[in-house]
Design a binder for these strands. Structure first.
Lengths: 124, 124
DNA sequence: TTAAGTGCAAAGAGTTTGCAAATAA
DNA sequence: TTATTTGCAAACTCTTTGCACTTAA
């Protein structure tokens, strides 16, 4: 564990959900390449996790934050949901196919209540 | 509907699941930029859909192919699953939060039965 | 003194954009 | 003509890589 890696890990904890770019901004004295290398290592060590919250960059978070991400297509808002939301799906895929779902790497897309009421078109 | 757009749509139907790059290869007389523009339009028209099947490029398919994607982290294989797999999850998010899940834009990650038995590490 | 980690700059993949030429209404 | 669409090239974003320099065992 080097100082740079500590800084990256601290930034992930501070930011909660963050892209590599945001993390790089939050740790100005660490090079972007080092941030990417650190995130890869921290993920192997099981200290952080990432998920894909849309078209763009992956989002990293502390490994302890075990939840599902629910993302609105329209406003882009990300809401966390309890991970037991996927229990049924997980059991079915396991029993029917022996497929072990990775709940943490999981994103549900759709349209949130606010955006259904007042669609903010083009605000993707 | 121009000839180029017809060709792109035909390629999506032929390929089933395809990235913009694969589609571009399948339609050599159409420029990549035109492929991207066509896919965007075809999606607005409701003729194709896309989902994110991993870190890389999105995957486009005919809009009629209404199913869930299950992707193995290790071997990268993509398996289609019936969309009723998410019924419970969908109902819960709807009732508890008024969130309308987009089932088509949905990917489940994990490890498939084959890869659990004989892990092919590093084959991501 | 050896191995590992870092910063920097360059390269790479995937995608988007500006614009002039081609096509269609 | 007038608007739309295309191809081409350039630009852009995000990420990875090569390599010399630094740091720590």
């Amino acid at each position: 564990m080097t100082p740079q890696r500590e800084h990256v890990l601290a930034a992930v904890h501070k930011l909660g959900h963050a892209t590599p770019e945001q993390i790089t901004e939050a740790v100005p004295d660490v090079d972007a390449a080092t941030v990417y290398r650190a995130l890869e290592l921290l993920e192997e060590l099981g200290l952080v996790k990432h998920a894909h919250l849309g078209h763009g960059a992956p989002s990293y978070r502390p490994a302890e934050d075990d939840h599902i991400h629910v993302v609105c297509h329209t406003c882009g808002r990300v809401v966390d949901a309890p991970h037991d939301l996927v229990d049924a799906l997980e059991q079915r895929l396991w029993q029917e196919r022996g497929f072990a779902v990775d709940r943490s790497h999981f994103t549900v897309f759709g349209i949130c209540a606010d955006c259904r009421e007042s669609p903010r078109a083009g605000e993707r």
